[in-house]
Amino acid sequence: MIHFRHVTKFYQPDTYALKGVSLHIQPGEFISIIGQSGSGKTTLIKLLIAEEKLTSGGLVIGGWDISKIHHREVPILRRQIGVIFQDYKLLPQKTVFENIAFALEACGASNNKIGKIVPQILKVVNLLDKRDKYPRQLSGGEQQRVGIARALIHRPKILVADEPTGNLDIANTREIVELLRKLNELGTTVLLVTHEKDVVNMLKKRVVVLDRGQIVSDQPVGRYVL
């Protein structure tokens, strides 16, 4: 499904965020990526959605060579990958409902469909009563849940979560992890980036450890080993 081949990412002027990373992710897999701050986890995701170009190496997603993707085709790729961003990336001028709806609108879904699906997902992330609030009126955890809802709304084939539980309490974290697990059981490939030991240990899935831009460990049923 996702194939990183000797991927290197160099940031001007002097940072190698990734150095020769090779990683193969099967369809339907649930993979956790852990690593210290600055080890290149977010960079890996940026390459995945073509937010950044690789410096060298190859990246193939579902048979599609992303390293040579045309600017015009980038939206097509992104509509099939749901991303929960570390810094939420909500639209400040839009309400909770509109933020989530936007991902569907960008795909061209009908208003009818949007009116039906968005309240459902709002219920899932427990934000029905905040649907008409703007992001600035929400707590960090609430904003994070809006981001989660937006990433899930169009049922992407691949779900990428960059520290999705960074701002959530234990109860909410547990529920989000359960949600990710459930989606994975329904066939979604999940790539989870996290700092949290408990989360990784709870999952009992494949764990990849990044250190200064290189993979130092890749275990099928990993435990948190930093």
């Binding site: 939206p75 097509i76 509509r79 099939q80 569907l104 795909c107 061209g108 879904a109 469909k113 699906i117 459902q120 997902i121 219920k123 899932v124 992330v125 427990n126 709304i153 169009h154 049922r155 992407p156 084939k157 909410n172 529920e175 359960e178 949600l179 459930k182």
Partner: peptide, 15 residues
């Protein structure tokens, strides 16, 4: 959070 309510249509929106 009610997981069972996460009842989206099964069709994928692809471009």
């Amino acid at each position: 959070m009610a997981l069972q309510l996460y009842n989206l249509p099964t069709t994928h929106y692809n471009l």
